[in-house]
Design a binder for these strands. Structure first.
Lengths: 205, 205
DNA sequence: CTTGACGGCTAATTCGGATTAGCCTATAAT
DNA sequence: ATTATAGGCTAATCCGAATTAGCCGTCAAG
């Protein structure tokens, strides 16, 4: 059932692995378990499948941005969580974030697909930057800002501090996307990164 | 003349913009100013053009690695340069590095092409990681290590410190690759990044 | 019970893009 | 001077991949 959905799902998988141009309509059909011409009962053509994926992606992104802005503008809610934060908590926070982004199937496939298609047009470029640069810096900036206001971290420039926290995580993520066998290594580096981050920005100087 | 060379050059340009699969032999020929069939007097087929680009890339990478290891293992040479380093010098060092990587035509095209082809096979994946993760961390680690030994910076963990220096630069580079119009913004962030880096790791704590 | 939309299939069709065949000229080496 | 080679061109050819045509079974609504 819901072949329409399964098409999107399998197409996303394939696009994220080989890139749009290297995936044949036939490949998608095969994965779904139907013949290629049957695909056209569900989508006008190959491009329409891609577009549908992008549309859904955008919906989810907007949803996510919305959710975050709700939680984010209500400091009282989050502040509780970080009341007695310590280095180990910070490590866990970062590591969990990392593992989630790395392993969550949808997230991972979207990221890889956008990586391969980011130069196709301005919209995709903007989408990539928003999702993997602007949004994380904004959102994590709010979190770290909370930790600063809790006195757990110190910084005059929170945006740059956020960059220092996030950029290494992002880079390690891209390493694992292309070389999954380096995940353990990456996790090790992650932990050292966060501990050093905490030492640098932590109140115990 | 040297049509063989020009083919590689134009092909690299096109591959870096659209990705291998979206470039037609015809496009390359047109840019070179010949007809498509004439390409085959120079290269066996389209794949051979790609392979030749990769080969040259590898040669240059090896050359570069060789050069760096020569300079790098001779601390006396570099040490001089960093004898009276200050924050502004560090900013200039980082900014110049950034501008170079961003604007150098060959470097930029190679980086973008590898970005688009990195998931094709293990070799390309490894090549990307080596060039944009392992090598920079190694080389810049040596530089920063020198600054530590000069007493200009302090760190117990130089590799992680290097990650803190490089990861933001790398991330800003990828932003500019896909959105060149954000270069000024990126440069501004770069400078603040380096100044804060210097504050964090600098001897004046 | 019958009809129409839904979703699948096989067999074309189309078409674009890679590659090959075969020809031609210029030039450099014998 | 002759010839071989390099490198260009036009005109096929080939082929694979997207898409269309047209057929069929199912099933829910009338």
């Amino acid at each position: 059932m819901d072949t329409r959905r399964r098409i999107l799902d399998e197409a996303l998988t394939l696009f994220s692995e080989k890139g749009y141009a290297n995936v044949f309509v036939n490949d998608i059909a095969e994965k779904v378990g139907i013949k290629a011409p049957s695909l056209y009962k569900h989508y006008k053509n190959k491009q329409a499948i891609f577009d549908a994926i992008i549309d859904e992606m955008n919906h989810r992104f907007e949803q996510q941005a919305h959710d975050l802005s709700i939680n984010g503008t209500d400091p009282t809610a989050d502040a509780e969580v970080y009341k007695n934060m310590d280095e180990d908590h910070l490590v866990k926070l970062g590591t969990d974030l990392f593992i989630y982004y790395l392993h969550d199937s949808y997230t991972r496939r979207v990221r890889k697909m956008l990586t391969l298609e980011q130069f196709k047009d301005k919209d995709l470029a903007k989408m990539y930057s928003k999702q993997y640069f602007d949004m994380p810096l904004t959102y994590q900036g709010m979190l770290l800002g909370l930790l600063v206001s809790q006195g757990f971290l110190m910084a005059d420039d929170v945006p740059v501090m956020t960059l220092h926290f996030y950029a290494p995580i992002y880079m390690l993520l891209t390493v694992c996307d292309r070389q999954p066998e380096r995940e353990q290594e990456a996790l090790g580096i992650m932990e050292k990164h966060i501990r050093q981050f905490d030492k640098l920005y932590g109140r115990n100087f």
